[in-house]
Amino acid sequence: MLKIGPYSFNSRLLLGTGKFPDFDIQKEAVEKSETEILTFAVRRMNIFEPEQPNFLEKIDVNNYTLLPNTAGAKTAEEAVRIAKLAKASGLCDMIKVEVIGCDKTLLPDPIETLKASEMLLEEGFIVLPYTSDDVLLAKRLEGLGCHAIMPGASPIGTGLGIINPLNIRYIIEQSSVPVIVDAGIGVPSDAAKAMELGADGVLLNTAVSGANDPVKMAEAMKYGVLAGRASYEAGRIPKKFNAAASSPLEGMSIL
């Protein structure tokens, strides 16, 4: 079970809801992924276009825990405002703190992320900060009382996988709250790798929504996460530099 604050989840795959080709494909992908947590952004309604469809109308929101993000915020104050707007929906009290500090790399601003997390914890939110793979920053965020730490595998939307597995491992080893590897996942083996390192979950979006067949990729990601987790729980063999035959040496006299 993945436990975040007061909530428990069977699935360790968190799925973003951006950039899907259409809602029908998205709905099927969400179902195939078996995710229980969906992320959303908060944006202005188009007041002159009331008929705009919304994915929330396509799903039974009671079957999912919604994890809105603060994407678009560049300061802690902006992030807090977006978080409060999200909470006023009455749909959720979890928030993914996302304060982007650089438009080119979309890397999070560590100072503003820390500030926003502190402010939101004081406001009573369940706080999940998206952070870089900085080990000490992760420690500071946990020290504030964050309910999970979400280090990026690589920059958002790149699909480059885990570019610093050592840092991710350090973050996992030091954390007593869940670590969810968020952003940069490209293929199921990336998700599996994160889980093999001991991550408690994986959050991804573009890897599924941007795949040629998002529904099939959603299912593949489910298996990637499951395989990686099972591997972690099973305990891998140590890496060795000497070969060791797996077939017996006895009974070779037939040669």
């Binding site: 973003g16 899907f20 992320t39 959303f40 309604m45 707007l85």
Partner: peptide, 10 residues
């Protein structure tokens, strides 16, 4: 007045 909603995002 600001009127906002949840939209697709990661």
């Amino acid at each position: 007045i600001e009127i906002v909603q949840f939209v697709g995002g990661g």
